[in-house]
């Protein structure tokens, strides 16, 4: 029973990290029709920038703010100088090659700068230690990640559903060309969404570092799980990213705890079943 509660909580923690990643990936795909295969790299880069800040300045909180800002600015630059040239319905291959190339370059640069060791980041002082949850002791930091994930989901939901810019983003998911024909500069929207998406990835990198550690290769591990989440949840929907994260986060955590040999298989089995029942994902727009 206690193992079950602990795994349930761990699953929630991991789900919320996945959600932070998937929300950005899904927004970028839905809006710009670009599959960002460098999304895991932005996660890892954010995590390592956070690591450096924690080591040099001793502040996890500062890392939490600065890493997403730095990576978000990098995203703006990458969108402006490269990605912008690759938009278009028939250019998926160009986009995939570009973002995959970016991921390979980033992996080498990260290894070059931070080394190939497994680095751990201590959680902030304020959130260290454990507290009782039902009958078990659970780390405060991990619990707070659940709260952060839920808050982020609500915040993003309000942004998308209740603001004008959110309506423009949702309209862009449906028909970006029509949005531009109404007088809205869709390229500015794209740039903003891309920067927001990669900043969220970097935020996930800092938040996740005390739980998952940082090491070369984590970028692609996270990327693959995030892609599965987005496919399962339905491309381009925040709700899909949230419930897809819960499903895959739980499947991964329980798989690793109870059926370690089949953990990866379990995730893809879940994906296969969901896609059989709903080909466009749990919350995917029909006909897309």
């Amino acid at each position: 029973m206690e193992t079950l509660i602990i795994q349930l909580l761990n699953g929630l923690v991991f789900s919320m990290l996945l959600f932070t990643m998937a929300a950005g990936l899904s927004l970028i795909f839905g809006q710009m029709d670009v599959i960002n295969l460098a999304h895991g790299s932005f996660y890892l880069l954010g995590g390592y920038i956070g690591l450096t800040m924690v080591r040099r300045l001793g502040s996890f909180w500062l890392a939490l703010v600065v890493a997403p800002l730095v990576v978000g600015a990098l995203g703006l630059a990458l969108e402006y100088f490269f990605l912008r040239r690759l938009y278009g319905r028939h250019r998926h291959l160009d986009q995939v090659l570009f973002t995959f190339g970016l991921a390979l370059i980033a992996a080498d640069l990260i290894r070059w700068n931070w080394g190939a060791y497994v680095e751990s980041v201590p959680p902030p002082e304020l959130l260290s230690g454990q507290i009782p949850v039902f009958t078990v002791q659970f780390p405060v930091y991990r619990l707070s990640l659940i709260a952060v994930g839920v808050t982020l989901a609500l915040g993003l939901g309000l942004l998308l559903e209740r603001t004008r810019i959110g309506a423009i983003i949702r309209a862009g998911v449906a028909d970006a060309e029509m949005v531009s024909a109404l007088g809205i500069d869709i390229h500015k929207v794209f740039a903003g969404v891309f920067a927001l998406g990669v900043a969220l990835a970097a935020l996930a990198g800092v938040l996740g570092a005390p739980v998952l550690n940082l090491y070369p290769g984590l970028d692609f591990e996270i990327l693959i799980l995030t892609l599965v989440v987005v496919v399962v949840g339905g491309l381009g929907t925040l709700r899909g990213a949230f419930f897809g994260s819960l499903l895959i986060g739980m499947a991964d955590t329980f798989g690793k705890a109870f059926l370690p040999e089949f953990a990866l298989f379990l995730i893809f089995a879940v994906m296969a079943v969901v896609l059989l029942l709903r080909p466009s994902g749990l919350f995917g727009l029909e006909g897309t």
Binding site: A167, A171, A174, V179, G183, L285
Partner: peptide, 22 residues
């Protein structure tokens, strides 16, 4: 102002959001 062929409304937005978007 464009009223395009096939209307091209934003199906996932409400009527009012469609109208006030731009």
């Amino acid at each position: 102002g464009l009223v395009p062929q096939g209307r091209r409304l934003f199906p996932n937005l409400t009527v009012e959001e469609n109208i006030t978007l731009a």
